[in-house]
Design a protein around this nucleic acid. Structure first.
Length: 423
RNA sequence: GGAGAGGUGGCCGAGUCCGGUUGAAGGCGACGGUCUCGAAAACCGUUAUGGGUCACUGGCCCAUCGAGAGUUCAAAUCUCUCCCUCUCCGCCA
C-alpha cells in the first residue's frame, strides 16, 4: 500500500498513477475518511489523557463524585475511540485498494499492445520442417496427458509422464543449482498453503481473491506463486541493514483459479490450475532495489540463455503492469510450434508497496528509525512453459526431442527424448 | 484428536493468586563515555514500536505485555473466544 502521508501531501500524483494504470483509486474517500478519523482520534485521546490523570487521583481520594465523572468520561472516550476505529477500518480497506505508483522509465500505455520490447537474445530456430506444438508432440510421445488429467481433476490440468516428468525434475534441479551456486540465492521449501494475512501482504488480497483457491473451512489459500510465502517470510520483522539484500529461491507448484481466463490458452500445457515454477525473491534496502531488480532479471535470462532458448525482454506499460508493481519485465520465449512467444518469466519490483502491507522493515543504521524494505520477485523460470519452449525448439523431424546440453547431466545422460532403444 | 503447562521489550526473565505512580524489576547483549599506550575488567549512561498533536531539528499526549472482545474509574494482572508454542498420550509419513 501507499503511505497515507503521501496521499495527504500529493494526492494528484497518486491519482495520475492510478489513472494511467487503469485502476480505480478512491482518493477522495480516503482524504475525507482521514480527516474524520483524525478528528475522532484527537477527541478520544484528549478525553483519555484527562481520564488517566483523574483516575490516578481517584486511586487516592476515592471521591464518589469524581468516580461518577470518570464513568462518564470513560463512556465518552470509548465511544469516540469506537468511531475512530470504525473509520480507520474503512480507511485501511480503501488504502489496500490504491494501486502502486510506477517508475519514470515505464512506458505509458493502455494494454498489451503498448508494451515495449527492450532487447532479445538468440533468434527464431530454423527447423527445416513444419514445427509441431508441444502438446501435439507431448501426447504423441506419451509424456503429456491432458485427457486423463481432465478425468482425474478437470480441465486445465495435465499429467507429465516418463521422460516428460523427468524433464521437469531436471529443469527444476538445474535452475535451483544455478541460482543457489552461482547467483547467491538461498533455497527454500515453503508452505504451499498460506493465511489471508500473507495473501494481503503480497497484494493478492483483497482485490484478487477470486484468482486463487481457498481451502474450505480454513483461513488458508493455495499459493498462486511461492512469492507469497517467500516475501511473507519476514513479515512483521525489522531486519538489520547488513543482512540485505536477502535472496531466496524456491521450486513449488502454483495454483490459480484462472477466473476470467475462459477460452484463453485452453489447449496445451500453458495456462493450468496447477503449474510449477522456480521463483526468486529479493528483499533489499530502498537505495538498491532498481539495481537488484535488473540483476534478478539477468538471473532469469541466464537460465534461458543456457537452455539456448530465443527470448525477448519486454517492459510492461502502465496499463498492463498490474496493481502492485512499480516496474515489470516479462521474459517471453519463442515457441515455433505455437508460432508465438510464451511468457516464461515475469520480474517485478514493488518498492515498499508490499513491505508496507507485510510490515517488513530494516534499520538503515544503528539507532536510526526503521524504514520499509523494497521487495522484488521474478520467475526463474516457470517450468511448464519452459518445457513447452524446449519441446518446440528442440523438436526433430521424427517427433523426438533433443535434450538441451545443460540438462543432460540431470537426465542421466539422456540426449533424445522419445528415441527408441537401440536394441 | 485427548490431557496438562505456557506465550512479557534484541535475548533471558520477574511481575499475574490479592487490578492502581509498571511501558514494565533484574540479568545478558549492543552502543556511547570514564579509566588505559591499547585492550580486558570495573564504573556511569543510552538502548521498543505505531499513532495523534503543537508555539515542531524538540515537547506533550494516546496505544501496545500472542490476537480480539468483555468487566472496571483503572487490566500485563480478572472473564470469554481465537491463534501459537512446549510436555505427555493417541494417530500417522
Amino acid at each position: 500500500m501507499l503511505p497515507l502521508e503521501l496521499i495527504r501531501k500529493d494526492p494528484d500524483r497518486v491519482r495520475r498513477a492510478a489513472e494511467l494504470k487503469g485502476e480505480p483509486a478512491p482518493i477522495e474517500e480516503i482524504l475525507a475518511l482521514d480527516m474524520e478519523w483524525r478528528r475522532h482520534v484527537h477527541e478520544a485521546e484528549t478525553i483519555k489523557a484527562e481520564q488517566n490523570r483523574l483516575s490516578k487521583e481517584f486511586a487516592k481520594s476515592r471521591d464518589s463524585d469524581l468516580k461518577d465523572n470518570l464513568r462518564e468520561m470513560a463512556d465518552r472516550s470509548k465511544a469516540e475511540l469506537g468511531e475512530a476505529d470504525a473509520v480507520k477500518r474503512q480507511l485501511d480497506d480503501l488504502l489496500l485498494r490504491v494501486p502502486n505508483l510506477f517508475d519514470e522509465s515505464v512506458p505509458v500505455g493502455k494494454g498489451e499492445e503498448d508494451n515495449v520490447v527492450l532487447r532479445d537474445w538468440g533468434s527464431k530456430v530454423q527447423l527445416g520442417f513444419a514445427a509441431r506444438t508441444h502438446f501435439d508432440l507431448g501426447e504423441a510421445l506419451g509424456i503429456m496427458d491432458f485427457e486423463r488429467a481432465a478425468r482425474v481433476a478437470g480441465s486445465r490440468f495435465a499429467f507429465l509422464l516418463g521422460q516428460g516428468a523427468r524433464l521437469e525434475r531436471a529443469l527444476a534441479q538445474f535452475m535451483l543449482d544455478v541460482h543457489t551456486r552461482e547467483h547467491g540465492y538461498t533455497e527454500v521449501l515453503p508452505p504451499l498453503l498460506v493465511n489471508s494475512a500473507s495473501m494481503t501482504g503480497t497484494a493478492n488480497l483483497p482485490k484478487f481473491g477470486a484468482d486463487a483457491f481457498r481451502v474450505e473451512g480454513h483461513d488458508l489459500w493455495l499459493i498462486p506463486t511461492s512469492e507469497v510465502p517467500l516475501t511473507n517470510f519476514h513479515r512483521e520483522e525489522i531486519l538489520d541493514a547488513d543482512r540485505l539484500p536477502l535472496k531466496y529461491t524456491a521450486y513449488t507448484p502454483c495454483f490459480r483459479s484462472e477466473a476470467g481466463a475462459a477460452g484463453k490458452d485452453t489447449r496445451g500445457f500453458i495456462r493450468l490450475h496447477q503449474f510449477s515454477k522456480v521463483e526468486m525473491v529479493k528483499v533489499t534496502a530502498a537505495e538498491t532495489s532498481m539495481e537488484e531488480f535488473e540483476k534478478l532479471t539477468a538471473d532469469a535470462e541466464d537460465i534461458l540463455q543456457r537452455l539456448g532458448l530465443h527470448y525477448q525482454v519486454m517492459v510492461m506499460c502502465t496499463g498492463d503492469m498490474g496493481f502492485a508493481q512499480y516496474k515489470k519485465y516479462d521474459l517471453n520465449a519463442w515457441c515455433p510450434g505455437l508460432g508465438r512467444y510464451l511468457e516464461v518469466s515475469s520480474c517485478s519490483v514493488f518498492n515498499d508497496f508490499q513491505a508496507m502491507r507485510a510490515n517488513i522493515r530494516y534499520r538503515p543504521a544503528r539507532g536510526a528509525p526503521p524504514r520499509f524494505v523494497h521487495t522484488i520477485n521474478g520467475s526463474g523460470l516457470a517450468l511448464t512453459r519452459t518445457i513447452d519452449a524446449i519441446i518446440e525448439t528442440y523438436q526433430r523431424a521424427d517427433g523426438t526431442i533433443t535434450v538441451p546440453e545443460v540438462l543432460r547431466p540431470y537426465m542421466g545422460g539422456l540426449e533424445i527424448i522419445g528415441a527408441r532403444p537401440a536394441s
